[in-house]
Structures are given as structure tokens and as C-alpha cells.
């Protein structure tokens, strides 16, 4: 089964926002703050990245790579990278995987690979 990360499409103005906000960031309408849930695209362009050499203690790897990706629909998302030598501007494609393991919780999020 393929997982998705979901964004929120305003029923009034059609603006797609990620992450979730109670009031639409585009039309600020507070009478009908209703949203359709739509999957975020998986393809995009790597805007910037870092290699973190002291990740939080619940990670077992010595480093994690993080990046900000501009997706095809213009939304931006922070995610983990599994790319050998990342370069800004490179095409990437995301998969939803486990990104954090706390004692009793597993969190799924977007992990980007070289497209």
C-alpha cells in the first residue's frame, strides 16, 4: 500500500495548504473553514538541505539528512533525504516511510530520493 502526506484544499478558494491550518492562509474566510483532503505530489526540486551530525537521541544513525523540497504544486515540505550527495536544485521523489521512532510511537513522513 502506498502512503501519502495530505494537504488541505480550501472549499471556498481552492488554495491548497500544507501543513494544516484552521483558517485558510489564502482567503482567511472564517465562516466556512472547510477543507478537502488531497494528497501532496511526490515529485519536486530540492531547495536546500543539511546533514545533521548530532541528531536527536532517538535516532540510531550517526547523521540524518534533512531538506526542504518544492513540490510540483508549489507547496514546500520539510523531509528527510536518502541521497548520497545531495545538490540544491536536483530533482527528487518522495516516499512515505517511518521517519522517527519514539519509545511507543512511530511517525511516518516524507523521505526523498534522487529522482
Amino acid at each position: 500500500m502506498e502512503y501519502n502526506i495530505y494537504a488541505y484544499k480550501c472549499k471556498r478558494c481552492g488554495h491548497v495548504q500544507y501543513p494544516y491550518r484552521t483558517i485558510c492562509r489564502n482567503c482567511h474566510e472564517n465562516d466556512h473553514n472547510e477543507f478537502d483532503i488531497v494528497p501532496l505530489p511526490k515529485k519536486g526540486k530540492l531547495l536546500t538541505y543539511t546533514i545533521l551530525y548530532n541528531p536527536p537521541s532517538d535516532y540510531e544513525t550517526p547523521t540524518i539528512s534533512l531538506g526542504i523540497v518544492e513540490l510540483e504544486d508549489g507547496n514546500r515540505i520539510t523531509g528527510q533525504l536518502k541521497i548520497d550527495k545531495p545538490k540544491t536544485g536536483m530533482a527528487v521523489v518522495g516516499r512515505v516511510e517511518i521517519v522517527r521512532n519514539e519509545s511507543y510511537n512511530e511517525y511516518r513522513g516524507m523521505v526523498f530520493y534522487k529522482a
Binding site: 536546500t48 543539511t50 545533521l52 522517527r100
Partner: peptide, 23 residues
């Protein structure tokens, strides 16, 4: 940091600063 859009990925303040610095 944002609980669902940042924190769950292992984002820390140094990592946000690192990405910002590169740009």
C-alpha cells in the same frame, strides 16, 4: 518546531539554521 511538519523528521534548531545558511 512544527510538530507534524518539522519535529517528527528529527528537525532541530541547528538543522533549520544549516538549511537557511546554505540558501
Amino acid at each position: 518546531t512544527h510538530p507534524m511538519a518539522e519535529y517528527i523528521y528529527g528537525v532541530t534548531l541547528p538543522s533549520l539554521a544549516g538549511m537557511f545558511t546554505r540558501l
